[in-house]
Amino acid sequence: MTDDARTVPAPDATPMARRTLLDLAVGATASGVGLLVLLPAVRFATPPAQPTPGARGSVVGRREEFGENTARVVSLDGEPVLVLALPGGDFRAFVARCTHLGCVVSYNPAREQIECPCHGGRFGCDGRVLAGPPPSALRELPVVVRRDEVMVVRG
């Protein structure tokens, strides 16, 4: 404004005031329209709350079908997958094959451990090895809960 006042001498006050108001209105509306474009663009760029496109999700059941601290083994594309309902209400899923020799593991709710029946391998609820011969943790698969449906995502 000070800049304007210095470079453009105002002949009288009224047109000056009117021009400034109109300029302000044009500027404000233009910025408003700009925001109107920008906000949806940002919303568009934000991926929707569901598994990444390209990955295939399989519904393994509804939330209420899983009791707390229980698990079930489901078959996805012929591969056994252990879906674990943790005591807090969270879900995790692991490929239910022991990393030792490939036996199908199961959940022991009493000890809150995943156990392999073959050679005594034991895994925690995060899939990490607690005891026994398995060389590495169970492979975890992402779980998405959407509209109360529990969905396991395969890459």
Partner: peptide
């Protein structure tokens, strides 16, 4: 395999997808 589905994904699932 995915191109058509990815466009449909935009239109159906992404916010403002149909409009963009």
């Amino acid at each position: 395999a995915d191109a058509n589905d990815s466009v449909r994904f935009v239109v159906t699932e992404v916010e403002y997808g149909g409009l963009v």
